[in-house]
Design a protein around this nucleic acid. Structure first.
Length: 171
DNA sequence: GCCAACGTTGGC
DNA sequence: GCCAACGTTGGC
């Protein structure tokens, strides 16, 4: 099972929008970048876990978890002239873009803002944090995934920081 | 709103 | 194949 991070602008499609979708499931359409497409098409599998990231938000943050429902299939919004994702170079006979279905899993107990991610030593090499990096679909290492979820739990308990281990011997 | 960084396009 | 121009992403 692999881990991914997928970006969406909450004004376009938020984690809450996913939660309210039928069966909590929606097609991740509109990806128009070859590298992101190839990852969805060639690497994503049913059962993979997705970190749902709100980009262009205040603050930008990882806000929840989702599950990949199945493998990639043609993105039909590319064939719709009325769609903002229309691409005349794609056709049903020769689809250029693909999408996957993802299902809402849960909101994190607290969003983990980008600034917090940057503070965590375990995430120093995370793709999201590399300069100039802007892939909307990106692989995440298992250790990175665990660090983010653990930090969300810490933030929810109001323990904020350090990015380190929990305090020992609390009473 | 600004702008750095990046991807894509298309002329040559 | 090169590369300038352009459009987009996305944090700030």
């Amino acid at each position: 099972m692999r881990y991914w991070l997928m970006k969406s602008e909450p004004g376009e499609f938020s984690l809450e929008d996913l939660r309210r979708s039928p069966e909590g499931t929606a097609a991740w359409d509109g990806v128009r970048n070859f590298q992101a497409r190839n990852l969805m098409r060639d690497e994503m599998r049913a059962g993979d876990t997705v970190l749902f990231y709100h980009s262009n938000a205040r603050p930008p943050a990882v806000v929840g978890l989702a599950r990949v429902v199945g493998g990639a299939y043609p993105d039909d919004t590319a064939w719709d002239p009325d769609s903002p994702y229309y691409d005349p170079r794609s056709s049903p006979e020769n689809p250029r873009w693909v999408m996957v279905d993802i299902r809402f899993e849960r909101a994190l107990p607290a969003p983990v803002p980008l600034a917090e991610l940057k503070r965590l030593p375990a995430l120093q090499d995370m793709l999201l944090l590399q300069k100039g990096q802007r892939l909307s679909v990106q692989p995440v290492r298992a250790a990175e995934f665990r660090a983010i979820v653990a930090h969300a739990d810490r933030l929810a308990r109001g323990q904020g920081g350090g990015g380190g281990r929990g305090r020992a011997g609390r009473s």
